[in-house]
Design a protein around this nucleic acid. Structure first.
Lengths: 109, 109
DNA sequence: AGAACCCTCACACATGTCTGCTAAGGTTCG
DNA sequence: CGAACCTTAGCAGACATGTGTGAGGGTTCT
């Protein structure tokens, strides 16, 4: 079959076989398949799994976060909207903000 | 007091007063306070709330996602690590990947 | 002062994510 | 063929997030 089966990959990566299937389902680490449908993990996949572990232990990132980060990469509209929102949030002293403050006085219920 | 109270802001923004408090707690939309501690929403906050609604209806983004996107902006280490991981994932045809494939043959259980 | 509103705290429940385990059945390889 | 492993599907439980509701008590404005 040429490649590690799910349990072997689990042993080497430190994840459970269950999680490997979960990560596959969610498109985070997708191994190729044998004729009969067995998952076959190669070096690339093992590296990705190790990377995932690292992200989790160092930053507390779970799969769901990664999936979202991937959306940010792949959907420019999303990325733009999110970035704009956050930028407006952070620069509480931007000129736009300042302009707005001017109007707040006119808003007194 | 000069500004909208939580219920007024809720009415104009389409969120519930409960959610406005929740968003405040989580630092997503933080209004200033009156002497007595009342939340006071101005134009800037109303805009942020509208933006949030928009993000949700258009992209299905909840507050938790925004909080994570904010982390990505503010923590360069995290951003770098995540980006690297995703990049390795997407370019399944990069030369690094290609190099790795060479070794996979040597890995046959 | 008093009506109407706000505050925080807390309980509660729905939904989603992660993870393990089991069941029924197919694959691999000696 | 048969042992050992794999597949998908589903239940289950732990934890986080989102949202409503109520209690007890303070604030605002007339």
């Amino acid at each position: 079959m040429n490649g590690l089966t799910v349990t072997e990959a689990a042993a080497r990566s430190g994840w459970s076989a269950r999680m490997l299937r979960y990560l596959d389902e969610h498109g985070l680490v997708v191994p190729r398949r044998s004729e009969g449908g067995y998952r076959l993990y190669g070096l690339a996949e093992l590296n990705r799994l190790a990377g995932l572990r690292d992200l989790r232990t160092r930053f507390g990132i779970d799969p769901a976060h990664l999936a979202f980060a991937r959306r940010l990469r792949r959907e420019p509209d999303l990325r733009g909207a999110v970035d704009a929102w956050l930028a407006a949030a952070d620069d509480s002293s931007s000129w736009i903000e300042w302009e707005q403050r001017k109007h707040e006085r006119l808003l007194a219920a």
